[in-house]
């Protein structure tokens, strides 16, 4: 990587004028930078790879290096009703949260970008506010509010609280795309005689599809994985997968936990490849 740095040196740089000392310092600086960057790359990737490796171990405990190769822990996983039920619960919560979030977020983003009304700045701030709060605070507040109005912890409570937590992601993604749209396209459609309804669905909405998919995917993943909100709002009788996994991590030391984690890592990887192909990776950055 230090080579790339040398080649990117601009032609205007008068290398000859610079002393040997500063060249040595530059070399050292580039080396330190490259070493740290390599460490960061390893930090980002190696932990997940280790979990995947350990999920295939034949030993009954978690240990490194893994011994032998077996799918036993994956089989164990699918044999446990508790985990399958939790996964189904999480899928339901994720699907409902995504639908509710998008149904609220798309018109909200439209109103906030295109609308001109008193208090628009305040409304935008309110809608993105939950994102600045820790999930725990939203979970606790919903739990307390539920107790106050005699509404018990349930899947519905998880969905309602997670929608508050996820709404900002969805709104911001759709808003970002809306502000980039060329209004000339909509004007052209209208002036060519298309109705406003038709223009909305065929011109405006169609250009938002990428942002909606990206926003929806993020909400779906967050709602599926979320622990900090779910821990306070989920009923003890129907736990989502994240809460189940949380208990397993604390009290179960078998490689089955590694197998479950590996499946989540694999799923995340597949989702990312699909998203990158569908909407482009750059858009995921917002």
């Amino acid at each position: 990587m230090s080579e790339t740095m040398t080649t990117s040196r601009p032609a205007t740089a008068d290398v000859a004028e610079r002393g040997n000392a500063s060249k040595v310092i530059d070399r050292i600086g580039a080396t330190i930078l490259a070493i740290i960057a390599v460490c960061t790359v390893l930090l980002l990737s190696v932990p997940s790879l280790i979990v995947i490796a350990i999920s295939f171990t034949e030993t009954a405990y978690i240990g490194f290096p893994p011994q032998g190769f077996t799918f036993q822990w994956y089989a164990d996983l699918f044999a446990r009703d508790q985990i399958i039920d939790a996964a189904v619960t999480s899928l339901q919560i994720s699907a409902a949260t995504t639908c509710l979030s998008l149904a609220l977020a798309i018109p909200a983003a439209y109103g906030l970008v295109r609308g001109r009304f008193f208090g628009r700045g305040f409304a935008s701030a309110l809608i993105v506010a939950p994102q600045m709060l820790p999930g725990m605070v939203i979970g606790v507040a919903t739990l307390f509010f539920g107790a106050y109005i005699a509404f018990r912890q349930s899947n519905l409570m998880v969905i309602l609280a997670l929608t508050v937590f996820c709404l900002p992601f969805a709104v911001r993604m759709v808003m970002a795309r809306l502000t980039q749209l060329d209004p000339a396209l909509e004007e052209a459609s209208l002036s060519m005689g298309a109705s406003k309804t038709r223009t909305f669905f065929e011109i405006t909405a169609r250009q938002l599809v990428g942002a909606i998919i990206a926003g929806g995917a993020f909400v779906a993943i967050e709602a599926f994985d979320n622990l900090t909100v779910a821990l306070f709002t989920a009923s003890p009788r129907s736990r989502p997968l994240s809460v189940e996994l949380y208990n397993l991590v604390q009290f179960d030391s078998s490689p089955m936990v590694a197998a479950l984690s590996s499946l989540e890592i694999l799923a995340a990887f597949v989702v990312m490849i699909v998203l990158a192909k569908a909407v482009g990776l750059d858009r995921l950055r917002t």
Binding site: V51, F64, V249, A258, S261, I265
Partner: peptide, 19 residues
């Protein structure tokens, strides 16, 4: 490499450190 970990739950990544 940067975005992929965001798609896995923080719980799984914490578990990795236990290991």
């Amino acid at each position: 490499l940067t975005v992929a970990p965001l798609l896995t739950s923080a719980l799984v990544r914490t578990y990795a450190w236990l290991v």
